[in-house]
Amino acid sequence: MDTEVMRHQLQYLTDREVFVSAGHADSELVRTADGWRIAASSLRLVWTRGTPPRVPANRGAQT
C-alpha cells in the first residue's frame, strides 16, 4: 500500500478581518483501490491576531 505525507499551509480571515490565524495541517495519505484517502490529519496554529469570534450561546440547541 502506498503512503505519503502532505503539509498544507493555511490562513483564516473572519469577514471583517477582526481575527486572523495561520498555521499548517499535516496529513497522512493512503492510496486505496478507489484513490488517495486521508488516513490521519493534525492542525497546528502558529500565530493569531485579534480576538477570536464568539460561538453563539444557542449553537447546537434543539428547537
Results as ranks from 00 to 15, higher is better:
residue 1 M to Y: 12
residue 3 T to W: 09
residue 3 T to L: 10
residue 3 T to Y: 03
residue 3 T to P: 01
residue 4 E to T: 11
residue 4 E to H: 09
residue 6 M to D: 15
residue 8 H to Y: 15
residue 8 H to P: 07
residue 9 Q to W: 13
residue 11 Q to V: 15
residue 11 Q to L: 09
residue 15 D to Y: 09
residue 15 D to V: 08
residue 16 R to G: 14
residue 18 V to G: 14
residue 18 V to H: 10
residue 20 V to Q: 07
residue 22 A to G: 07
residue 23 G to L: 02
residue 23 G to P: 12
residue 24 H to C: 01
residue 25 A to C: 08
residue 25 A to V: 07
residue 26 D to K: 00
residue 26 D to P: 00
residue 26 D to Y: 02
residue 27 S to R: 01
residue 28 E to M: 07
residue 30 V to C: 02
residue 35 G to S: 09
residue 35 G to T: 05
residue 37 R to S: 13
residue 38 I to G: 09
residue 39 A to R: 14
residue 40 A to D: 06
residue 41 S to N: 13
residue 42 S to R: 13
residue 42 S to N: 12
residue 43 L to I: 10
residue 43 L to D: 09
residue 44 R to E: 12
residue 45 L to M: 15
residue 47 W to Q: 13
residue 47 W to F: 15
residue 47 W to T: 12
residue 47 W to H: 14
residue 49 R to E: 02
residue 49 R to F: 00
residue 51 T to F: 01
residue 51 T to I: 01
residue 52 P to N: 06
residue 54 R to V: 05
residue 56 P to E: 06
residue 56 P to M: 06
residue 56 P to K: 08
residue 58 N to E: 04
residue 58 N to V: 09
residue 59 R to W: 05
residue 60 G to Q: 05
residue 60 G to M: 08
residue 61 A to M: 05
residue 61 A to C: 07
residue 61 A to P: 02
residue 63 T to K: 14
